[in-house]
Design a protein around this nucleic acid. Structure first.
Length: 291
DNA sequence: CACTTGACCTGTCCGC
DNA sequence: TGCGGACAGGTCAAGT
């Protein structure tokens, strides 16, 4: 669920709350999720917050950056004076802000705090020298992404031309390709499922079997669902919350994701099928998504 | 090289 | 009621 729209929503809010403030103290409560030296970030001022694919980067004024991947259930929640009217915290904030799933707490100079929760402990935070960001394994291999014009991401932009090149060069199933962060970054299971339904393309189609028109339709569909996700502030189906403690709303707009067994609202001739494709739960309409 | 499976974790839900 | 199993989706490593 944390895909481009979710992580972008986090980036947008953190960019409002954090820059200009100094990290006074870092409390690590579960050391496995934190890699690097706390001394590299304590007493440093936060300059900016960026996003590359599904990764958040927090740049400090001392030449270091924090690199954060929240994977499936990570949560970054801010509480402090920069939140003028603090909204009520979502009940999805697992275990609260000092509970069993709170693994790292960053205390700021203005009594504000940034809490990192992660029920499943898949996510990670690393300290890296800012000029060596590109050497972080995950960032090193990251492919171009959609909507860089909207999100101001400095990740390479995925043009339609590049998209055609990428899809045309492999027989892998189109859905698996869309979720391969090394080829295209930011798209995960939910938006891949919805975009394929919107584009009327079967998720198991070999990528290089798509016609020019289909490829363009898919490209536009991905842009559309990602934009819709962004507009709604992300999808809070599982554990996603925004740093102000509130939930996103895209889960109310799911097109095909999560609708296995229900009637397809477009053709009304078939029920959505749930099937594992490459190990991931996938939903599609067997009637109107062409094989 | 392409592709699949299992590992990493824990909470929730469903059927017996 | 309790218990086992499937499932949730992001990546990496190992296996076919």
């Amino acid at each position: 669920m944390p895909e481009l729209p979710e992580v972008e929503s986090i980036k947008l809010q953190l960019s409002k709350f954090l820059p200009g403030h100094t990290i006074e103290e870092v409390e690590i409560r579960y050391s496995k999720c934190f890699e690097g030296d706390v001394e590299n970030i304590e007493e440093a001022e936060i300059k900016s917050v960026r996003r590359f694919g599904k990764v958040i980067v927090i740049d400090l004024d001392n030449g270091y950056s924090l690199v954060i991947h929240i994977k499936l259930t990570g949560q970054l929640v801010y509480r402090g004076p920069n939140l003028r009217k603090a909204p009520q915290l979502s009940r999805k904030i697992t275990g609260g802000l000092r509970g069993p799933h709170t693994h790292v707490i960053f205390r700021l100079d203005d009594r504000g705090s940034l809490y990192y929760n992660d029920v499943r402990k898949f996510g990670w935070i690393k300290t890296v020298k800012s000029d060596q960001l590109k050497e972080v394994n995950f960032l090193r291999t990251l492919g171009p992404e959609f909507l860089t014009d909207v999100t101001k991401s400095s990740q390479e932009h995925l043009t339609l031309e590049k998209f055609k090149k990428i899809t045309g060069s492999t027989k892998r199933s189109i859905k698996t390709l869309l979720m391969d962060q090394g080829k295209i970054s930011g798209v995960g299971n939910i938006y891949a499922i919805d975009a394929l339904w919107l584009a009327k393309i079967h998720p198991e189609r070999p990528a290089d079997s798509l016609s020019g028109a289909e490829t363009k339709r898919l490209y536009k569909s991905i842009e559309k669902v990602l934009k819709e996700g962004l507009k709604m502030g992300g999808a809070s189906e599982l554990a996603f919350v925004r740093p102000d403690g509130t939930e996103g709303g895209y889960q109310k707009n799911f097109l095909a994701y999560g609708r296995g067994g229900k009637m397809c609202p477009r053709c009304k001739k078939a029920k959505f099928v749930y099937k594992k494709i490459a190990g991931r739960g996938t939903v599609f309409c067997p009637n109107c998504q062409s094989v």
